[in-house]
């Protein structure tokens, strides 16, 4: 899409800033072709607006929920997942609350903790050493669980890293495949030029290399658009390639001539 088309489409869809809009309107007065094209687009939009929209009845959430099992899905209202420790904290709070509301008594006698609830005969004693031991065991269990979680996390990270490597390798393979596909679409002369371009690219400045890379991607895009028989996409790809190559050329290299040929000659 060139600048003119970009401006037209932004103007007719009201996505142009006021100042630019005024400037564009002045341009239209000087350019009858532009005025006609904008007018045609406006007419087309006006016609499109004549297709009236119907009203649709909005179902309630209950209707949707009733439909859910038929469609094999379940709606869960609970959107927040609490971490596990919060359930423990909730349990402790519940016990404390229960103790506060009931007549549960916690006291320390000599070397024991005494928990009494209701009549005195239900009183139970725990040796503080035993309690300490239970607490220590709980802490040790927690530490083991944490270690397990850490090692699981490390394992997952490792798996992820492996997956990333595989994906990267796959992408690289696909890129090679794309290159092969490009080469299938090229004449011998163009293929040689592409290879020469890649060879010479090593001597380019960083910025030019980036642009060249983009140009190559645009070539890939062009091949894809051709496959999809998307003529507009193809035209865009041409334009993109041409723009990029002009930019590279302005950096003082002749390397890109080969790619220019690739972009224009083939179609």
């Amino acid at each position: 899409m060139n600048k003119r088309e970009d401006a037209i489409i932004r103007y007719v869809t009201n996505e142009m800033a006021q100042e630019e809009r005024q400037h564009f309107e002045q341009q239209m007065q000087k350019d009858p072709g532009l005025l006609r094209e904008v007018g045609d687009f406006r007419d087309t939009q006006e016609i499109l607006q004549q297709w009236q929209e119907p009203e649709f009845e909005v179902p309630s959430f209950a209707d949707l929920e009733a439909e859910a099992p038929k469609k094999g899905s379940v709606i869960q209202l609970s959107a927040v997942r609490f971490p596990k420790w919060m359930s423990y904290a909730a349990a402790v709070l519940f016990l404390l609350g229960f103790a506060w509301l009931s007549d549960l008594q916690i006291a320390q006698k000599d070397n024991s903790l005494v928990l009494s609830f209701g009549p005195a005969e239900k009183e139970a004693s725990y040796n503080t050493d035993q309690v300490a031991q239970i607490v220590d065991q709980a802490i040790a269990r927690y530490a083991t669980q944490t270690q397990e979680q850490d090692s699981k996390e490390a394992e997952l990270n490792q798996q992820f890293a492996n997956l990333e490597k595989r994906v990267t390798a796959r992408l690289a393979a696909l890129y090679q495949k794309d290159l092969k596909e490009i080469q299938q679409h090229l004449t011998d002369h163009e293929r040689k030029q592409l290879l020469a371009t890649e060879e010479l690219a090593r001597g380019l400045q960083f910025e030019q290399r980036v642009l060249l890379q983009e140009a190559i991607i645009a070539v890939l895009d062009k091949i894809e658009q051709q496959r999809l028989e998307d003529r507009i996409g193809l035209e865009n790809a041409f334009e993109q390639i041409t723009t990029l190559l002009t930019e590279i050329q302005s950096g003082g290299t002749t390397v890109v001539d080969g790619v220019t040929d690739l972009g224009v000659k083939h179609y």
Partner: peptide, 27 residues
């Protein structure tokens, strides 16, 4: 940019089929 270029292409194609239609004047 792709959105704009597809919009442009779409409107251009619609222009051809809508504005040349015999019902245009009635519209």
């Amino acid at each position: 940019n792709t959105v704009k270029s597809r919009m442009y292409a779409g409107l251009k194609a619609l222009k051809k089929s809508l504005i040349r239609h015999p019902h245009k004047k009635e519209l």
